[in-house]
């Protein structure tokens, strides 16, 4: 049984009065790819922000290597963040810096390496994502897929212990998708990095994840290896895995009956 790097214990998180997570627990083993799946809008990104300490739960613990993230002081939290990194959905590259400068940024901030060594390391990271030739470009000159790959190079710049991927496959062309899928898997296999992938792209996640949690309706509705998930019979899990438009998760957002709205005899808006 691999050691657990992140242990989420009974967290409840609310935004204003809206409950996002109701007493959920999950474990993220060291050196493995763990996927968090679920329909849009259920707070998958929120979970990554909770792990990163950008949000605090109302109750429960989030242990990173034994340290309770919500209970850390500001300085201790920043020290802990040096051991993790996050690939944002938008890439979040610094728009006033070139691709090269973006990737060199965390190295310059957190290491005493010489510029010669930083240059070599940046080129190695860029080579891994296939963007060595694009190092002089600004983020505004990159396509969406290239920006995500550059952001991935920046996320692995300091070889963190934990990488949080926020929807890494969303809106990617096949080439970028292939590069990112291959990299997430090979980073875990070759370097032993722990990965948490938040996504609703079922085939890609099934192909790389070691363990999957499916979240819906504020709870974990299913978890297991990809094979175990495929065998689950829960209607909620089946609807999500099969991509059925209607089922326990309704296709329509809560609304007055369609017929009443159209002929004007209903409660109205």
């Amino acid at each position: 049984m691999p050691k657990t790097l992140v242990d989420i214990q009974n967290i409840t998180f609310k935004r204003d009065e809206r409950v996002i997570y109701d007493d959920i627990s999950l474990s993220i083993p060291k050196g493995k790819v763990t996927a968090i799946m679920g329909p849009s809008g259920i707070g998958k990104t929120t979970l990554l922000r909770l792990i990163g300490g950008q949000l605090k739960p109302q109750s429960g613990k989030i242990l990173f290597d034994g340290q309770n993230i919500p209970g850390l002081s500001r300085n201790a939290l920043y020290e802990t963040r040096k051991r993790m990194s996050m690939l944002f959905q938008s890439g979040a590259l610094f728009s006033d810096m070139s691709v090269y400068e973006n990737i060199a940024f965390p190295m310059r901030e957190h290491s005493q390496l010489s510029e010669t060594l930083i240059e070599k390391m940046v080129l190695m990271k860029l080579e891994a994502v296939g963007l060595r030739g694009a190092r002089h470009l600004k983020p505004s000159e990159l396509s969406g897929g290239m920006a995500r790959r550059a952001a991935l190079a920046r996320a692995i710049a300091l070889d963190p212990e934990l990488i949080l991927y926020d929807e890494p496959f969303a809106g990617q062309d096949p080439i970028s998708m292939g590069v990112i899928v291959r990299l997430i898997r090979s980073l875990a296999d070759a370097l032993g990095l722990t990965s948490v992938v938040v996504s609703h792209d079922v085939p890609e996640v099934m192909s790389i994840a070691d363990y999957i949690y499916i979240i819906a309706e504020k709870k974990i509705i299913g978890h297991g290896t990809p094979e175990q998930i495929n065998r689950q019979t829960s209607p909620l899990v089946r609807q999500f895995i099969n991509g059925d438009s209607d089922g326990p998760v309704p296709f329509h957002f809560n609304a007055a009956p369609y017929r009443e709205e159209l002929i004007g005899t209903g409660a109205g808006k």
């Binding site: 922000r49 990163g52 950008q54 920043y78 020290e79 963040r81 040096k82 993790m84 990194s85 996050m86 944002f88 959905q89 938008s90 979040a92 590259l93 610094f94 728009s95 940024f105 965390p106 901030e109 957190h110 949080l164």
Partner: peptide
């Protein structure tokens, strides 16, 4: 504001840069 909207401020925080 634009740095906030494009998650650049969040990414700084996650890189342990205040």
């Amino acid at each position: 504001g634009l740095m906030k909207a494009t998650e650049q401020l969040s990414s700084l925080e996650m890189m342990a840069v205040d």
